[in-house]
């Protein structure tokens, strides 16, 4: 923790989600969610199934249409909807998903979503797609990323679909890192993995965080997430139920009872 840059830099709000609402038809996925991420922070969002956790990330990366709200990154508007009646005609000042990626807001999607028939190397290079002009830089970056995941180095020319679940998750994270994220948004990286591998992956994420990347982690395994992160938001039925420092939340009786199963 001590190696991380602190002081003034930590005070800058990097991502601000303001009054965000998303509807899927009549179903309300998110209702008036507001949250803030300061640079360098490691934030966890936990909540039960269907609480709107993934929708939150999809909204930030511009993959779903907003009912209401704004999302700003470094005081620049990423996604916004001012007038819901005309939103289909007027795109407002929202950016396209690829432009959001270019800003360094990178989404590592749920269920890994690799390109299974492409090789590991091709997968990683596609992660650096927005830096298309700098091939050499990309290879240097790949070396850096592989330093974090040394087990992948020997299998660069294998199809990504042939890897085990844990390795596929590592590839997915490595692919996201290839895009030089300022904010890395991870959607349930521990899904469907064995407990030891979950811990291994969480260690890797902590390592990435310590290297200075801001992290927004979405997790069902509350214990795992709260132990790794600094601050957490609890999302329930599309609204933020409570927030706080992880150490405080871990002592909260309600949290222990509902999400960790201790009574």
């Amino acid at each position: 923790m001590s190696s991380r840059p602190t002081s003034v830099w930590r005070q800058i709000t990097l991502l601000r989600v303001n009054d965000l609402s998303v509807h899927y038809g009549r179903a309300i996925a998110l209702a008036s969610v507001t949250l803030e991420i300061k640079s360098g922070e490691f934030i966890a969002v936990i909540g039960p199934n269907g609480a709107g956790k993934s929708t939150l990330l999809r909204a930030i990366s511009g993959l779903v249409e907003l009912e209401r709200g704004t999302i700003t990154y470094n005081d620049e508007i990423l996604v916004e909807t001012t007038n819901s009646r005309y939103r289909k005609i007027r795109k407002d000042r929202s950016l396209m998903p690829n432009e959001i990626v270019q800003r360094g807001v990178i989404h590592c999607p749920e269920r890994r979503r690799l390109f299974p028939k492409l090789t590991l190397e091709e997968n990683l290079m596609l992660g650096a797609y927005v830096y298309k002009e700098e091939t050499e830089e990309n290879y240097k970056r790949m070396e850096e990323v592989l330093r974090l995941f040394p087990a992948l180095r020997e299998r660069m020319h294998e199809e990504a679909g042939n890897f085990s679940g844990g390795q596929q998750q590592m590839i997915a994270i490595a692919r996201s890192l290839m895009g030089r994220p300022k904010i890395l948004m991870l959607d349930e990286p521990s899904m469907g993995l064995a407990p030891t591998i979950r811990i291994e992956i969480m260690e890797k994420i902590k390592e990435i965080s310590q290297q200075g990347t801001t992290i927004l982690l979405i997790e069902q395994d509350a214990m795992l997430a709260l132990k790794a992160a600094e601050r957490a938001y609890i999302l329930e039925d599309g609204t933020i139920d409570r927030e706080g420092r992880c150490s405080d939340l871990l002592n909260n009786e309600y949290i222990l009872e509902t999400y960790i199963g201790l009574t």
Partner: peptide, 23 residues
């Protein structure tokens, strides 16, 4: 070329391609 690789990525998974910053 790289163009073909991006096309293959779109074939494999459009959403993942989109979150890699591909238009």
């Amino acid at each position: 070329s790289r163009y073909g690789l991006v096309l293959k990525a779109i074939r494999e998974d459009e959403q993942a391609a989109s979150s890699s910053g591909i238009n």
